[in-house]
Amino acid sequence: MNKARAFWLILTLLFMTPAWAFQSRVVTIPSAAMHKSLEATVVLPDQYARGKADDRFPVVYLLHGSGGDYTDWTSNSQIGKLADRYHVILVMPDGGHESWYIDSPVDPHSRYETYVGTEVVGYVDAHFRTIATRQARAITGLSMGGFGALHIALDRPDEFGAAGSISGAVDPRGCEDEPGIDQVFGDPMRHADFWNNEAIVENARSFGNAHIALTIDCGVNDSLVQSNRTLHERLVELGVPHDYAERPGGHTWKYWANAVQYQVLFFAGTFKRNGATTAASAAA
């Protein structure tokens, strides 16, 4: 291939590449709580580069599931396109393979709630042009990450104004056979109180007190659907506002890649109602 042909091929590929692809980057975030650094994927909307230098953006935090990492969402879905569509920053931190995003009572080195809920948020606000208020922050995740998102939001209502769960393990007491879960929660018998206190289904009333915009969904063929129905029913009984949906599908990326589109749409609407938007998204 001669140089001229190679040049035009490269130029063509550049123009064929979606704009948001250039805005995806991996950052390394230090954790004082765990004495190590972890990576995270950050996707910036195209408007971040094209807009005014002082434009600031709301942030959606997306948590991966058990056995996953910070690359899961971008590897298995078209999540990056949502950053452009809704003018939001997407942040996908690494939550460890089986951390459950809690500060473990039995493993002092596993403090992923503090890491994600405090250290990641602090890093993102310090290094990117965010709207650094609860009204402009949302957090969601799939499976273990769904539990983690709701758990972190409940513990930090001053940090997150909106939260969601996709196929969330909202009652970890039904996941006792999950490999490694007892290493962070502790033995289900000896630490029964902790397991009970951490179950999202036992904390439905707290969502009303926290005034968090809430969206939950699960596939009808998912083994976790019954615990999600229980959470939904308790929220209804308590009069806690929330969106709830069941759609065809199971515990698969096909379901999650579709469901996250509705969740980010929900968050974008919440940001707009809160007045926490850029000029571009407010005009959309």
Rank of each mutant, 00 (worst) to 15 (best):
K3F: 04
A4R: 10
R5H: 08
F7P: 00
T12Q: 05
T12K: 08
F15P: 05
T17E: 07
A19H: 14
S24H: 08
S24A: 13
R25G: 07
V27L: 08
A32F: 02
M34A: 12
M34D: 10
H35A: 10
S37A: 04
E39F: 06
Q47A: 14
R56T: 13
P58K: 14
V60K: 12
Y61W: 06
L63S: 09
H64C: 06
G68V: 02
D69W: 00
T71P: 02
T74P: 10
L82I: 08
D84C: 04
H87Q: 08
V91S: 13
M92V: 02
G95Q: 10
S104N: 12
P105D: 05
Y112Q: 15
Y112T: 15
V121H: 12
V124E: 10
D125Q: 05
A126E: 11
T130W: 03
A132F: 09
A132P: 13
R134L: 03
A136H: 14
R137A: 07
L150T: 07
L150G: 11
P157N: 13
P157V: 11
G161C: 11
A163E: 02
G174C: 08
G174L: 08
G180K: 14
D182Q: 15
D182C: 06
D193K: 14
A199D: 06
I200W: 00
E202S: 07
N203G: 02
A204F: 02
A204I: 04
R205W: 00
S206D: 00
S206H: 02
G208Y: 05
I212E: 12
L214G: 02
T215G: 00
I216L: 01
S223R: 01
L224M: 07
T230M: 05
L231S: 01
E237T: 02
P241N: 01
Y244H: 09
A245N: 06
E246L: 06
E246S: 03
R247C: 11
P248G: 11
G249E: 13
W253M: 11
K254T: 14
Y255V: 12
W256A: 07
N258Q: 15
V260Y: 08
L265Y: 09
F267Y: 15
T270Q: 15
R273F: 10
A279G: 11
A279C: 11
A279H: 09
A282S: 07
A284S: 15
